[in-house]
């Protein structure tokens, strides 16, 4: 590095703090989403580690199925937790996705505070991926919790996946490193009449790690019973 550049950096760091002239961020490590199309859509090859990703969309748009597929994929490699606010997680559904249930912790909190405390503790303890299934009516007060949560997740290399119905609050949108919005396009059936999956329009609304705005139509498959 030329001397003058070094001098300039020193001046900037003295005036604005050591983080002022930041080096370019190294490539962010990722965890698989369970669907190759989604991995490609994110631009970095999966869900970013140590950051929050938001899956948004109307009910029935496939975001929860995708989240559960991601949980199943990560459970095959490490420990995962599913914070089930609505208490409607179906382990059999996860099992059909090939999830290792012995690597899965299901947290069923009674309040947002309890749930967020669990996420903080589990992230710090080394859980690899935590999926937070948060209905819209339970999101009040989340803005105060998110900074602590993200700090813990970043420290512990824990991937946070937030499933949120409909429009997310401003705070969630601000703290999320990646926002994927889903819109249901059509149901897809097999020849025998069974449901094969859901055709959705997925859009990367926000992406701090790769170019946002990418839109793709893809099939979120359902597991074969």
């Amino acid at each position: 590095m030329p001397d003058r550049l070094e001098q300039a950096i020193t001046v900037l760091q003295t005036r604005f703090g050591s983080a002022a002239p930041r080096p370019a961020a190294p490539p962010c490590p990722t965890r698989p989403s369970g669907l190759a199309e989604i991995d490609a859509l994110t631009g970095i090859g999966g869900w970013p580690v140590g950051r929050l990703s938001l899956l948004a969309g109307q009910k029935g748009s496939g975001k929860r199925t995708l989240a559960q597929q991601s949980v199943a994929a990560t459970s095959r490699e490490g420990v995962v937790a599913y914070v089930d606010f609505p208490s409607r997680l179906d382990p059999e559904f996860l099992h059909r996705f090939g999830a290792r249930l012995d690597h899965l912790l299901v947290v069923r909190p009674k309040s947002l505070k309890e749930g967020m405390a669990s996420v903080r503790v589990l992230a710090r303890a080394g859980v690899d991926l935590i999926c937070i299934d948060l209905p819209r009516r339970r999101s009040a007060g989340l803005d105060a919790e998110l900074p602590h949560l993200l700090h813990r997740a970043a420290e512990a290399d824990c991937t946070l996946l937030l499933v949120h119905d409909a429009e997310a609050d401003d705070a969630i949108r601000y703290y999320a490193s990646m926002i994927l919005a889903f819109q249901r396009s059509a149901w897809v059936f097999r020849r025998d009449g069974d449901l094969e999956g859901l055709l959705v329009d997925a859009t990367v609304v926000k992406n701090r790690l790769a170019p946002p705005g990418v839109k793709r139509r893809l099939l979120i498959p359902y597991p074969i019973p």
Binding site: P91, L105, V106, P109, V121, L122, A125, G126, V127
Partner: peptide, 23 residues
């Protein structure tokens, strides 16, 4: 850093055994 088992035990002690479950 505490182990995951320790963390789960601590959560269960604070919020009750039904908070963190396995299926």
């Amino acid at each position: 850093k505490e182990s995951i088992a320790d963390a789960v035990a601590r959560l269960q002690e604070e919020y009750g055994p039904s908070l963190v479950q396995r299926a």
